[in-house]
Nucleic acid binder design. Structure first.
Lengths: 221, 221
DNA sequence: AGATAAAGTGAATCATGATTCACACCTTTA
DNA sequence: TAAAGGTGTGAATCATGATTCACTTTATCT
């Protein structure tokens, strides 16, 4: 045996893998999954097309890894809010604001993750992450029900509905960015409307004041 | 000039065009857009591949026509409910039930229309139809606000949120059908939860009794 | 019937983009 | 430094499926 992978090489490989993922991310942020070809990603990462296959067995795996990385971050963000020991209504409202906020920070990428046509194999991933979002919300909702802040309802369905409520109103404006016709957009106002609908749907009596939202908005801005 | 299109031919052409659309629809209902190739649709319709292009300039146009036909029906269904001169809360609840009901009647097709990865060109159509659904809901919502049945809120955002609330909780179960693992599913219970969330979100005080939903469900079953 | 203009056909062609592969080039170990 | 076992390369290959086109058949009109 005259060769064994050494630390240095492992590090380099990890680095290259990260570079590839990063390149793919850049492409997605600019053009969505539609612009992501193996050749383009290779070029952007500064490696040969063939090298891509030393790091990912095929394109699907690359896309999956990327999708998980990006969606994972978003879900983690929600989880972090859920951990904060806030009143459930406050927590959900923050989720609304944070989600909306972040979506418009990287609109094309967000659109790609949320709604862009993907390889069918990836659609499963999307469902999995929607489920993950829903679980976070479900947890908050259940706390709210226990605390008597929300009315008794099917927390599972409610959590999915919240996912829909948060995402759907963003799609049209995000698509604008995706298709190039970006216009200035007041995401704060939108988030405010959505969070109200969201809390209403759960039967929350909490009426967070506008002020609260403003502060929170700035906190995450 | 020794040839001019006659009525008979026009009728036949219209018929063939319809046959092609119908064939495409059958394929979609069974396998989603993923299974829809020009060759497959031609075979199903009983025409040659090349003939497809006498009726549709390209695949996108065919898909678009089909998408419009199918989505149009669904939206019309909602419009019909909106016209019924019901209390806004009742109208919205019916929309919930009808939408859910119809979705599970043709689950693969519904999934295809709602969420399946499509050619990007079609994604625009999807947005347009989401918008159309939203407009129907917006109309109902505004009536509800005027009547004092709903609280004052941004009816535009609310209508989009309703679209999301109605669609999102259906996706996972519909996907089951799409990917082959169909399981018996209680769509009635789901519709009940959703309609409650929906009305809540608008600040409706109306509490439709379970009974009402049961009847309505049967009406559309 | 003969001329004209479509409509119908399906095998061949194209386009796109993922994937492979034979070869060059490093790293490690003895 | 030679052998062994990677890693890197990018042009060539493949797969899929849309689209074309030269040709056949059908319909209409004089």
């Amino acid at each position: 045996m005259a060769y064994r992978e050494t630390e240095k090489i492992q590090a380099r490989k990890a680095d290259t893998k990260a570079k590839i993922l990063s390149a793919a991310r850049q492409i997605i942020a600019l053009e969505g999954f539609g612009g992501l070809t193996m050749a383009a990603a290779a070029k952007q990462a500064g490696v040969a097309t063939g090298s891509m296959y030393r790091y990912f067995p095929n394109k699907i795996e690359l896309c999956t890894a990327l999708f998980r990385q990006l969606s994972g971050r978003e879900v983690d963000e929600m989880r972090a809010i859920a951990k904060l020991d806030l009143r459930p209504a406050e927590a959900l409202a923050r989720c609304c604001f944070n989600f909306t906020q972040r979506a418009f920070r990287a609109p094309v990428q967000s659109y790609a993750l949320m709604a862009e046509p993907l390889d069918p194999a990836l659609e499963m991933e999307r469902l999995i992450y929607r489920r993950a979002y829903a679980e976070v919300y479900q947890c908050i909702i259940e706390r709210g029900i226990e605390a008597g802040d929300f009315e008794e309802l099917d927390s599972h369905t409610a959590s999915l509905a919240v996912v829909g409520m948060l995402a759907e109103p963003l799609l049209a404006p995000l698509h604008q960015f995706y298709s190039g016709e970006s216009e200035p957009f007041d995401s704060r106002k939108l988030a405010l409307s959505i969070s109200r609908l969201c809390l209403n749907s759960l039967g929350s009596k909490a009426q967070l004041k506008n002020q609260d939202f403003d502060e929170q908005f700035n906190e995450y801005a």
